[in-house]
Every structure is written in C-alpha cells, then in structure tokens.
Computed example of a mutant assay.
Amino acid sequence: MFENYDLFKTFIQLRTGGVAESVNRREALAGAGESLWTIGAFHAEDDHAVHSDVWERHTQGHEVLVVLSSALRVYVREEGLVATLTAGQSFIVPPGRWHRLAVEEPGDLLSITPRAGTEHEKAVA
C-alpha cells in the first residue's frame, strides 16, 4: 500500500485523473503507458549524463529543472547560456524552446518533464 521509491532508479509518472505511479525507467523511456509528466532524478557526473550534445524541446508543456547539488549550465538555442544553477535553484523551460544542459560541477538534478511533444536534435559543435 505505501512504498518509497529511489528517483535515481525509477520515474514517477503523473497521469490523468491525479494518478501518480512509479515506473521502471526503461519502460518509461520506451513509451510504455501514457503520462502527462515524468519526475526523475539524475546523477550528473559529466556532460554525457545530461546529454549536453543534444538539444531538447517539449512542445506540449514547461519542463522544470531543479539542481539538488552541484552546478549546471542551461543553454537555450536562440540565446546561448541563460543560467548557471547551483544547489536549490530551479529553472523553468518554456514550451517549444530548444535547450540543453552542461555540468559545471558534478552533482544531482531533478526534472519534471512533459511527455507529449518531446523532441531531440543533435547539437552541432
């Protein structure tokens, strides 16, 4: 009935009707089930961990990024570096804006991401 979850190993999916459930990350990333939002935590040890070589956008909603520990840089394609976030700081990415992250100092990140309309594109160096 009551369970606790390790957000570094699972995702919490928020579904229609106020339902929240824990799901296996592999299933969630493969698109198993439909959710409105996915909540997850990530160890951001290096740029590879935050796919800094990939632009991402969410056409159907805002993405919320929360730095739990460390320092991360947020880039928006049209504007370049827009923020350097440290522990306890957050950033809301508006719908449809291409963005990517880079690690300034290794640590942990929490994201709340809309599932519908997410797109990725390789960043050109």
Score class of each variant (00 low, 15 high):
residue 3 E to R: 15
residue 3 E to Y: 09
residue 4 N to H: 15
residue 7 L to T: 01
residue 9 K to A: 12
residue 11 F to D: 15
residue 12 I to H: 08
residue 17 G to W: 00
residue 18 G to E: 12
residue 22 S to C: 10
residue 25 R to M: 10
residue 28 A to Q: 12
residue 30 A to L: 05
residue 31 G to W: 01
residue 33 G to S: 02
residue 33 G to Q: 03
residue 36 L to A: 08
residue 36 L to F: 07
residue 36 L to P: 05
residue 38 T to F: 01
residue 43 H to G: 14
residue 44 A to D: 01
residue 47 D to H: 08
residue 47 D to M: 00
residue 48 H to N: 13
residue 48 H to M: 07
residue 49 A to L: 01
residue 52 S to T: 06
residue 53 D to M: 03
residue 54 V to Y: 00
residue 56 E to D: 06
residue 56 E to H: 11
residue 60 Q to W: 00
residue 62 H to T: 15
residue 64 V to S: 10
residue 64 V to Y: 09
residue 66 V to Y: 12
residue 71 A to C: 09
residue 72 L to V: 12
residue 77 R to K: 14
residue 78 E to G: 10
residue 78 E to F: 07
residue 79 E to K: 14
residue 79 E to C: 06
residue 80 G to V: 08
residue 81 L to F: 03
residue 82 V to E: 02
residue 87 A to F: 00
residue 88 G to S: 06
residue 90 S to I: 07
residue 92 I to F: 07
residue 93 V to E: 01
residue 96 G to K: 06
residue 96 G to L: 01
residue 97 R to K: 11
residue 99 H to I: 02
residue 99 H to K: 04
residue 104 E to F: 00
residue 105 E to A: 13
residue 113 T to R: 09
residue 114 P to E: 02
residue 118 T to R: 03
residue 122 K to V: 15
residue 124 V to I: 12
